[in-house]
């Protein structure tokens, strides 16, 4: 008897509490790459004491846009993190649901090709990386399954070590950027590939014979594996190199080493911009959105000596920051 009334009471509670009260807390979703930076801003913003600390979810860039564009109102997030710009389909989805947004480019994230400090120091080109990792490479005038076993097979100047590269799986934004910024560009550097009509997405296929290893979304794991195996290379975000620079080192790509300065000045080319998208419709109904954006785009946060820099976010050039901050703080609507 008591059990049954207990059950009824429980169900009743669930249904009654289900009607949510007004939300007074900013909600952020989106990319796991931008997550470490947005959470840092959120924490600082909360410590300011005027507003509650925003809730930041790590859902991935695509998942973030899906939630963000689903509609306007308390049940939908106010900000989404993105490790790439919004695409046409996502924007159309947003427009359809009446979502108006502001795009804020918050900084750069370098992608590094690195190995253990005890391993060889290499000068590598994007072309070499593509030849080492592509599924098919040009040999003797036609495309054949990648025959290279060691880096020295690819180019004499590279170490005579087995090709073994650990990197993120296809679901990751870092992987997309690596394919776009390194493999596709590397492919374009190889004249023989160009002659065979290889370009763009055709160059994106990676070998599946164990030379490239999908090491999961966890970059810390890749770092640990590199330390254990000095012959292997790894692909991950710059902040992990920054935190572990006593144990691993970044390879020179096209003669430039991945340092904070080189990424910021644009010398190191394997870097991508990171974004946040803010829902204009929610300004006024959810408290603190404007102030949160202002905090994000203030010099003490995304500036040269700001706290995001300490976390490994590479700041935009001075002029872009100034312009970006103005655009963001006036919530200039983004159109496509």
């Amino acid at each position: 008897m008591t059990m049954k009334s207990f059950a009824l009471a429980a169900v009743a509670t669930v249904l009654v509490v289900g009607a949510a009260e007004a939300r007074d807390q900013i909600r952020v979703v989106g990319s796991s790459t931008v997550y470490p930076f947005t959470t840092t801003v959120a924490e600082q913003f909360g410590k300011g004491g005027k507003f509650k600390t925003p809730i930041v979810e790590s859902t991935g860039t695509g998942g973030g846009f899906k939630l963000f564009c689903a509609g306007v109102g308390e049940g939908h997030p106010d900000v989404t993190n993105a490790s790439r710009a919004i695409n046409k389909n996502e924007f159309a989805d947003c427009t359809k649901n009446g979502v108006k947004m502001t795009e804020v480019k918050v900084g750069f994230d370098g992608i590094v090709f690195s190995n253990a400090k005890s391993g060889p120091t290499v000068n590598i080109t994007k072309g070499h990386i593509w030849l080492g990792l592509a599924k098919e490479v040009p040999v003797g005038g036609k495309m054949v399954a990648n025959p290279y076993k060691t880096w020295a097979d690819v180019d004499k100047s590279l170490p005579n070590a087995k090709i073994e590269v650990l990197g993120p799986p296809p679901t990751s934004g870092t992987r997309d950027s690596f394919v776009e910024l390194v493999l596709q560009e590397g492919c374009a550097e190889i004249p023989a590939a160009k002659e065979l009509g290889m370009a763009g997405a055709k160059c994106a296929a990676m070998r599946e014979d164990g030379s490239w290893i999908d090491a999961g979304e966890n970059d810390n794991l890749i770092v640990q594996k590199l330390i254990a195996n000095p012959a292997a290379f790894g692909v991950f975000g710059y902040s992990f190199l920054d935190q572990n620079s006593d144990k691993i080192k970044g390879a020179n790509i096209e003669g430039v080493i991945p340092t904070f300065e080189n990424i910021q000045t644009g010398k190191y080319k394997v870097a991508r911009p990171l974004f946040i998208y803010v829902k204009n419709n929610h300004v006024g109904s959810i408290p603190g959105i404007k102030e949160f954006v202002t905090e994000y785009t203030s010099e003490k946060s995304w500036g040269k000596d700001g706290y995001l820099g300490v976390k490994g976010l590479v700041p935009l050039p001075d002029a872009d920051r100034k312009k970006g901050a103005q655009g963001a703080q006036s919530m200039t609507e983004f159109t496509m």
Partner: peptide, 12 residues
Amino acid sequence: LLMIGMVAFVVD
């Protein structure tokens, strides 16, 4: 819990 948004940064 990922789907219902509990994989989140919650300071409070």
